[in-house]
Design a protein around this nucleic acid. Structure first.
Length: 440
RNA sequence: GUGGGUAUAGUUCAGUGGCAGAACGCCAGACUGUGGCUCUGGAUGUCGUGGGUUCGACCCCCACUACCCACCCCA
């Protein structure tokens, strides 16, 4: 259609049956998080631009080139407009809410999760969209509540392993590193710069640029020729101070005790400024270049940089689009058909079909009704194309006798049944347990 | 922001400088209340947009746009 309006670049419509998979993922997430006592938080999509400048970091790519931001109209002529941004991630918003509502006054640690859209103005490609969805969780609170404990890190990671297993995702791997803290990282960075000084001219052009802008990212380089050089660069692990080192050791110890498999990746770095200490990434092959399905880490100084009290925390974000993608690699998506198709036959029958449908739906039966103008043949044909297992023929005979012609569309058997029996025959057994909505 | 590829029916894709195609899907029909299989018929397109070459362009040339893939970055 020339001239018609289309979805904007990097955004997309999620249609059935794919939305079934999304619902399955979200239902499983809520179910798993619940037993860890994580509760849902919903923060605005629109935030003050400064929130991200001060948390994610003004020099990061996310803030410096990928944000949707604009100056909002001033409220009064005497005032300036306010700079707003569509959130590029959700941790900053959660911590902002933590500070704004003085949530440290609540007892214990705050454990939140969120599910929602995020926005980054990047060039779209496989597994990367301008509007994408993240499922994330955060544990924040005062140190006295235990927010700095390595047990929190381990619990969060174990929860993620459980979630991926429950979703039926196979072949994931967990990469773990410690990126240090405000204490030891400057020392490491200096050591890294010093080491790079002599060798950087032999590296790829990207690395030469990164050595200046963000030396940590050099560790991330994938150019084969650079690998031997990178292997010889100093490692963060050797520069961790006493407290960071024991913290990291304790995280690993608990994970091992819980049988959560992981590998240490000395070169794992994160692209947001606020990360400290534990940093991690879950990856999955068969995702193309965007193989990270989730990432996260500690952010012990974030609250302070947003004007709040000390509130160490740790969190992660799952790329829901990517998660759904890996799920669809293994299991194909299928429409979930209705339980029964009512075929009203002849003038005046729509009314009877509506009444019957209402009664059946009250009993939890999934009903689709045809129209009295359809020929029976067309109704049955439509019903089988929709994959419905039963068709219920509703004509004058049925209304008069109270015996409804119920046809099993897979066997072809047909019988007259009373109104009260319909739901029992038509409803699949799997529909009976209440909590099993959304199985694949 | 950079590079490569692609753009034709609802979908997946053929196609040729001279009438626009297939498969699947969709709609209708094959004796009036019985589907799936089969058969018959039908509709659907500014051939991405704009320019140029040509007697004539869906096809050749140029520009633009969008999508896909990769770099970058990240989830």
């Amino acid at each position: 259609m020339a001239g018609s309006i289309k979805s904007v670049r990097g955004t997309r419509d999620l249609l059935p049956p794919e939305t079934e998979t999304w619902n399955f993922v979200e239902a499983t997430v809520r179910d798993v998080f619940r037993v860890y006592h994580f509760q849902e938080i919903r923060t605005p999509i629109l935030e003050d631009l400064q929130l991200f400048q001060r948390s994610v970091g003004e020099e990061t790519d996310i803030v410096s080139k990928e944000m949707f931001a604009w100056e909002d109209r001033a409220r009064a002529q005497s005032e300036k407009g306010q700079w707003l941004a569509l959130r590029p991630e959700n941790t900053a918003g959660v911590v902002r809410a933590y500070i704004e509502h003085k949530l440290w006054e609540r007892p214990g640690l705050q454990r939140f999760y969120y599910i929602g859209p995020q926005f980054r103005r990047e060039r779209p490609q496989k597994g990367r969209y301008r509007q994408f969805y993240q499922i994330g969780a955060e544990v924040v609170g005062p140190s006295a509540a235990g927010s700095e404990s390595p047990a929190v890190d381990a619990e969060l990671l174990e929860m993620l392993a459980t979630l991926l297993d429950r979703l039926g995702i196979q072949g994931w791997s967990l990469k773990l590193n410690s990126v240090g803290c405000a204490n030891d990282r400057p020392i490491y960075l200096q050591a890294l710069r010093d080491a790079l000084k002599d060798v950087v001219h032999t590296m790829c052009s990207d690395c030469q640029r990164r050595a200046v802008t963000n030396p940590l990212r050099v560790l991330d380089c994938k150019v084969p020729e650079d690998q031997p050089i990178i292997e010889k660069l100093p490692r963060m692990a050797d520069y961790l101070d006493e407290s960071c080192r024991t913290h990291f050791a304790e995280v690993r110890k608990i994970l091992t005790a819980m049988d959560v498999p992981f590998t240490i990746d000395h070169r794992l770095v994160r692209g947001l400024d606020y990360y400290t200490r534990t940093a991690f990434e879950f990856t999955h092959g068969a995702l193309g270049a965007q193989n990270a399905i989730l990432g996260g880490g500690r952010y012990d100084g974030l609250s302070e940089s947003l004007g709040g009290p000390p509130a160490p925390g740790i969190g992660f974000a799952i790329g829901e689009d990517r998660l759904v993608m890996t799920l669809q690699e293994s299991a194909g998506v299928a429409d979930r058909p209705a339980d029964v198709y009512i075929a009203p036959l002849g003038a005046g029958m729509n009314l009877h079909a509506a009444k019957l449908a209402r009664e059946l739906r009250k009993q939890g039966v999934v009903v689709i009704a045809g129209d009295e103008s359809f020929k029976l043949k067309k109704s049955l044909e439509t019903a089988s194309k929709l994959g419905v297992s039963f068709a219920l023929i509703l004509g004058e005979n049925e209304v008069n006798s109270g015996q409804y012609a119920l046809k099993n569309l897979s066997t072809g058997e047909q019988a007259g049944v009373g109104k009260a029996e319909i739901a029992g025959i038509v409803k699949p057994l799997s529909a009976i347990p209440k909590r099993s909505e959304g199985s694949l």
